[in-house]
Amino acid sequence: MESVEKIKVVAALLLVVVGIAGYYMVPADQGVLRVLSVVLGLAMAGAMLWFSALGRQFVDYARDSIKEAQKVVWPSRKETWQLTGVVFLFVGVLALFMWAVDSGLAWVFYDLVLGRGK
């Protein structure tokens, strides 16, 4: 990254910091101005990054991500409900299995080994 791009990124970060500092510098009873200072700082930082190489790379990445998400074949409603049912059934069976193992081990250790059940 060349020095001009680094300066843009640092300036954007400073704008965010200035916006947050403005929030704390404005009196508490001026809630709208406090929020406006943060929003304005973020907007100015976004504008600064928008015109940097890093911002352009991010926009290109976001566009490519949206294109890839559009290529995904999403399951139908019926398939979604069927898979959800399978997951719930598996969780139920696993819970019963873990309960059985826990109860069995508790019986072995407490009743047989330690003799506390007598």
Rank of each mutant, 00 (worst) to 15 (best):
L114T: 01
S37E: 00
V18E: 08
V18L: 15
A21M: 11
A100P: 01
L40S: 15
Y23N: 11
A28N: 10
L96H: 03
G31M: 08
W74T: 08
D102H: 04
I20C: 00
F97P: 00
V4E: 13
K8Q: 13
K8I: 00
V59M: 14
L112S: 10
L83F: 14
F97M: 08
A28V: 13
V59P: 03
P75M: 03
R116Y: 15
L33F: 14
I66Q: 09
W50Q: 03
Y23W: 13
Y24W: 10
W74G: 00
W74D: 02
T84F: 12
W99N: 06
V26R: 05
D29G: 00
D102V: 07
L112K: 14
Y23F: 15
V16K: 06
V87F: 14
K78C: 01
T80L: 12
V16I: 15
I7E: 07
L54A: 09
D29W: 05
L114S: 04
D102P: 00
M25R: 13
L94C: 10
I66C: 01
V38P: 00
R34T: 04
G31D: 09
L13H: 00
D60E: 13
E5C: 04
V38F: 04
L89S: 07
Y23I: 03
M98H: 09
V17N: 02
W50E: 06
V91G: 01
V87P: 00
Y24V: 06
Y24M: 08
G104C: 03
Q82F: 14
E68Y: 12
L112Q: 14
W99K: 07
S76G: 15
L112F: 14
V87A: 13
S3N: 08
L33Q: 09
V16M: 15
I7H: 06
A62G: 06
A45M: 03
M48L: 15
E2Y: 06
S52P: 02
V101G: 02
G104M: 00
V16S: 07
M44R: 01
R116F: 15
S65G: 13
V91M: 11
V86M: 09
Q70M: 14
T80Q: 10
L96V: 11
G19C: 03
K118N: 13
L89Q: 01
G22V: 00
